[in-house]
Amino acid sequence: MINDKNSKKIVDIIQDFSRRHSLFVLAYGTGCGAIEIPPTMTSRYDAERFGIRGMATPRQADLLLITGYLASKTLKRVIRAYEQMQDPKYVIGFGSCTINGGMYWDSYNTIKILSDYIPVDVYINGCMPRPEAVITGFIELQNLIKEGKANGAQKYKENLEWYRENQKKVIKDWKMPDYNW
């Protein structure tokens, strides 16, 4: 994906363009921020203009949207969903809770920094971010894809041990296969 600008072939240009403009979102809506997704998708803000569309399963999705706090229990499911997504895949952390814990900064069962556990391409701050902010985040991701910088999945694969170590610190009873594709 990261090609030299000059050696970019026409196929790559088409591929990149379609990748940018067709993002299938898997919204992991456990946090309160999930309430901002319906307005973003429906008539007032209409994210479908940018080709952003909800998808129901991780297999079909390109973009994992983590809306808000993640309990250590749900982290396990998020990791599974993330690893089941097919490359190229991106993650957006949504709300202060994914950045630094937000108002749950001292809670015993929510993780504090999402990017310790799965690679995050774009963070949207706010508690909770308004639909404008959400759409700005999507556009930021599109720009990152255009510049070839949205390579969180690659980072995850290269630093799998580090991520696993962090994940296993929280998920004590690791009953999953080592990597579930």
């Binding site: 950045i99 630094n100 814990g101 900064w105 001292d106 809670s107 015993y108 069962n109 993780i111 504090k112 920094i113 310790d116 610190k169 929280v170």
Partner: peptide, 24 residues
Amino acid sequence: PMRRDFDTVEYVDDNYTFRPGRED
């Protein structure tokens, strides 16, 4: 965890990492 002598901040410090600037 709901017992009052359970120190959440200490637990969080042991198990998670605080983002710098958000330790309190």
